[in-house]
Design a protein around this nucleic acid. Structure first.
Lengths: 347, 347
DNA sequence: CTTGAAATTTGGAACGATCTAAATTACCAG
DNA sequence: CTGGTAATTTAGATCGTTCCAAATTTCAAG
């Protein structure tokens, strides 16, 4: 059962040539005679030879391995991201170490270190919450290309691919304004993250642009989860001058907000406008269907992988920052459907 | 920027010892003097040395890499599976190549070949539809441990971890019978897969056990997707002696079935009982909430990884077949809530 | 036949670790 | 001191590949 593994030398011997020739055949060199190439190829198949890439890399020190570390694979947004990367990495003839950091910076550091020991040529990282630039500095300084995706790490000079949170938030707010809302809140998310900051600024800028109130009390931060959404909406409902609509940090918060509204006998999408962010898979099927800002995670993954491969192949490179565009998907939770119905009646 | 990489020899030189000693330190051997160990450790940190595991493996030919290939990472069931594996693989000090085959056997073959060239110690595979035993034979024969998960490949003597589809389907059917249904259908899934066969037999056995009709016309196969569910339920509604409830091949089919029922003005969970399979994440939040057979994919992933590691560590091993137990999660779509309400009124 | 250039093939030194067996050093009792 | 054992350290071969420089073969023209 356990084959004593066969090497180039075995192949060479069986084919009656030298190991150098076999090596040449393996790399498809044009130096080798067509007859010998065929002969060696036949022997390779016959003996069931498998190429040992680590041995090869040892000599030429350029591996075909990239690392992919994602903060939460169970979140379908990040799973899609990973699948996008997988597609381009695979079709470029590379293979990936892939690991889930589960939002734990220590675990993240461990797997990155391990990948480095195994000789990865580059890393795509969707960083765990709390990742600092110091965590990544040694890796970056060693000259290994790194691409951050979905989230940024402040103070680190590396490439990144992030979605346009500012534009997305602004578009969502403009849509709510167009629907007639004049007092709009921003719900959920930890206010010490870069993503929060960007979306919140988009929110605020759109309000200011329309000459509406954009004061601090309209921004209610909380955990970026369903539970956080419930908590945030409770705070909102206790406000004196109560808003009539809200943009949420992400879809999970938006779902929580809907839960919270319902338990206060306020129907989301009818009595109150709710917009989410990310367009997770459940957004379409939820009741009411969630109006949300959609960010094609698979496309982002592909772009990140392309960027990384480009940097790996060009010995020297400059960090690049890509911004993935974003689009508002209007469904029911914002109340657009309601308004159309109303207009139909009036007409 | 680009460090000329430092090796054991550099460390040895800087620490004033031989490379053998450095190697001993690296493997934490007790042979080396405490003073030298400290000295070498300091130099290692100072020079920013990174261990080159491929070089090491070349000599000792036992890598700390496992391969994980999954048929569809965008499906949250399989994503959870992968996360479970990730957990145990990572904490065992291994690292994984992970790839998505996207249900494409050719792509699957490619990535497995690539992983093999890179020297993986074992493989966990959730096989793409259409995988044959011939596809995996060479790998298995080479003595590399392989664990199949979620799906089996007929005619291949390797370890596997699958859920108990028979018991799950039977439990679901018994529950429907208990709710008063006497004519029950099985919807969706391709009837040439092992998983289909197992679930369908569980369905049939439970019907026979209760002395009910279990004829072929009650089994309506289709694509295992939402669209497939719609198609299957349409065929069901055109039947002469129409069933009053259905067990679906998986949750996607169940959602489709609900869609189809609604467009025929039949309310799932009220006029018709629907049960799914897998307990995907949306099952809980859908309307009506889906009654379904839950299979803890993360736990399955963990068990698969544990099994693989066990086989890697014991030089020789026998294939083992693990069956993950399964439990029925009763929500709304089966009509149980309705019945309870009715009973409350009657009481 | 030679001959020289082109086409092939090849030996052996890397690559960065481990491992064996042997060398060196330390230490202690006599 | 000396011998002997225990504790450390080390030289050098080795793992499976690539690559350089050199060797060999092929072959058409003189």
């Amino acid at each position: 059962m356990k084959q004593p593994k066969v090497t180039v030398v075995d192949v060479a011997h069986a084919a009656g040539v030298s190991k150098s020739t076999v090596s040449l055949v393996l790399q498809g060199s044009s130096l080798v005679n067509e007859t010998t190439r065929a002969k060696v190829g036949a022997v390779i198949r016959e003996l069931g030879y498998v190429y040992n890439r680590s041995a090869a890399n040892l000599r030429q020190s350029k591996s075909k391995i990239v690392g992919i570390v994602v903060n939460d694979l169970t979140n379908s947004f990040f799973a899609e991201l990973a699948v996008g990367m997988d597609m381009v990495v695979q079709s470029a003839g590379y293979i990936q170490f892939m690991a889930n950091s589960a939002e734990n910076p220590d675990r993240q550091a461990e797997v990155i270190a391990s990948m480095r020991e195994h000789g990865m040529a580059g890393l795509i990282l969707s960083p765990a919450r709390g990742t600092t630039s110091a965590d990544l500095r040694p890796l970056v300084d060693s000259g290994i290309p790194v691409v951050l995706v979905a989230r940024n790490v402040p103070g680190l000079k590396v490439s990144s691919v992030v979605s346009d949170g500012h534009a997305g938030a602004a578009a969502a707010v403009r849509h709510l304004i167009e629907l007639g809302h004049r007092r709009i809140a921003f719900l959920g998310g930890f206010n010490d993250t870069a993503v929060f900051d960007e979306r919140m600024r988009g929110f605020r800028d759109a309000l200011v642009e329309a000459g509406l109130d954009a004061s601090d009390e309209l921004v209610i931060s909380s955990a970026p989860s369903r539970a956080g959404g419930v908590a945030a909406v409770e705070r909102l409902l206790s406000m004196a001058d109560r808003p009539t609509a809200a943009l949420c940090f992400n879809d999970a918060v938006a779902f929580g907000a809907c839960d919270g509204l319902r338990s206060a006998r306020i129907e989301p999408g009818v009595d109150f406008g709710v917009i989410g962010f990310d367009d997770v898979i459940e957004a379409k099927t939820a009741v009411p269907a969630l109006t949300t800002v959609s960010v094609d995670p698979q496309g982002m993954g592909r772009r990140a992988a392309q960027l990384l491969l480009k940097q790996i192949n060009s010995g020297d490179f400059e960090p690049e920052a890509l911004v993935a565009s974003v689009r508002l998907v209007v469904r029911e939770s914002c109340g657009a459907a309601q308004r159309m119905k109303r207009e139909a009646v009036t007409a």
